[in-house]
């Protein structure tokens, strides 16, 4: 079951963080997910995999997750411990994949202008509100439709499918 409130320190990235940056193509065939994880976002933040701590939040500009449909991109972020991704907008396949595998994603207008890397955010998925604990500010993110929240609450699309089949 996923937590509906996520609190963590932020890592700020720019616009157009594409799936080739999240996991470059040359590592796609690797069978060892642990090994793959070492290369996540290495083109944007060197040694990101060593630096990220469980529950920390990625904040980005527009079009996060653009490019390939590789579901391994949100899956590796989740496995590295990323608690949520907040971005001004998401590429649609990444957005679906993230929800489907249970990585919370939330849109928030101008978020990258509002926060500094390292700020602590508290995100309420149900209401879509984002509290900046470091700056004592609140931002309104886009609320997810009910049925998507249900997928997240079920722990992913396949768990939801199993529930509905029972």
């Amino acid at each position: 079951m996923m937590r509906t409130v996520i609190k963590g320190k932020t890592w700020k990235l720019g616009d157009d963080i594409n799936t080739d940056l999240i996991l470059p193509g040359p590592y796609l065939t690797m069978r060892d997910t642990e090994q793959m994880m070492q290369h996540v976002l290495e083109g944007a933040i060197p040694r990101f995999a060593e630096k990220i701590r469980k529950g920390e939040i990625i904040v980005a500009g527009k079009n996060f997750g653009s490019g390939s449909s590789r579901e391994i991109a949100p899956l590796l972020l989740k496995r590295l411990g990323v608690g949520a991704v907040v971005a001004e907008s998401f590429a649609r396949i990444f957005f679906r994949n993230a929800i489907n595998i249970g990585l919370p994603v939330i849109e928030c207008k101008d978020i990258s202008e509002k926060i500094k890397s390292g700020d602590v955010l508290e995100i309420n998925l149900e209401t879509g509100t984002i509290k900046n604990v470091s700056r004592k500010e609140n931002y309104a993110g886009t609320r997810l439709p009910k049925f998507l929240l249900e997928i997240i609450e079920a722990g992913g699309a396949l768990k939801r499918l199993r529930q509905s089949a029972q």
Partner: peptide, 18 residues
């Protein structure tokens, strides 16, 4: 349109997708 592995798995199982 493009989908990820989980969405495709849902299609393999049900033939449908949202």
């Amino acid at each position: 349109t493009g989908v990820g592995a989980t969405d495709m798995t849902v299609v393999f199982a049900t033939g449908k997708l949202w």
